[in-house]
């Protein structure tokens, strides 16, 4: 069954009075459990595509179906509800809320949907990323790798159908990167989540089943690879 379907997606921004098309007619289709990488040089439209797929922005033309829901005509608040229900995020800058502890950060998506007594779930997730002992610490008290692991736990808290990761290792050293990436794929496999990864790192991209290469907003190549391991 299709979990994420992108059909002929185009995004145009007005720029200096002239329309600037940053994404040209991109299409793909992902099934449950698929792992998918979007690669390309800076300015190729990777982040724009990720934003459109996750319902953070609206396309100029074309459609996005997420878990069977067509996002194109939904309001921002309706899309927020879809994100809360079906989507998880991991960012290059971790984007943890600095005023909340690690545990509270993991709880946010659950509490936003009104789920109470979710502390055990959140603690289990923190335990799964190896940070149960740091549950009461604030982001500023954690290293970069630890912060990204908290953000991994947060991303899986609502058992998302699709996990979007934007350069998840961009701010980490190679050793920490490897640990985080392994964890990411393990959790993904366990939960059966579809993973969409935006990265410059071809080695990381190679770990996914399919890779979409963008240049100047256009798909220049789509590679299907055998899943490693």
């Amino acid at each position: 069954m299709s979990i994420l379907r992108v059909d002929n997606l185009t995004k145009t921004y007005p720029s200096g009075g002239q329309p600037l098309t940053v994404l040209h007619a991109v299409s793909f289709d992902l099934a449950a459990g698929d792992t998918f990488a979007i690669v390309g040089p800076s300015g190729s439209g990777k982040t724009t595509l990720l934003g459109l797929c996750a319902g953070l922005d609206r396309a100029t033309s074309g459609s996005v179906w997420l878990n069977g829901i067509q996002l194109d005509n939904l309001s921002e608040d309706q899309r927020a509800a879809v994100r809360n229900e079906h989507v998880g995020f991991i960012f290059q800058n971790f984007q943890l809320l600095p005023t909340l502890t690690a545990l509270e950060n993991v709880l946010v998506p659950l509490e936003l949907r009104g789920q109470r007594g979710a502390t055990k779930t959140a603690l289990d997730l923190l335990d799964r990323v190896g940070l149960a002992a740091r549950a009461g610490h604030y982001p500023a008290q954690l290293s970069g790798g630890e912060q990204q692991r908290v953000s991994l736990a947060r991303a899986f808290a609502n058992r998302p159908a699709v996990l979007f990761a934007d350069e998840p290792t961009g701010n980490l050293d190679p050793d920490t990167s490897e640990r985080v990436v392994n964890l990411l794929f393990e959790l993904n496999r366990e939960a059966g989540t579809t993973l969409v990864l935006v990265t410059h790192d071809l080695e990381l991209a190679a770990k996914t089943q399919r890779t979409l290469r963008l240049r100047g907003g256009k798909v220049v190549e789509e590679v299907n690879a055998a899943v490693p391991e």
Partner: peptide, 10 residues
């Protein structure tokens, strides 16, 4: 970030 995680504007 909150909006990203699904918080509505309200």
């Amino acid at each position: 970030v909150l909006r990203c995680l699904g918080a509505s504007g309200k």
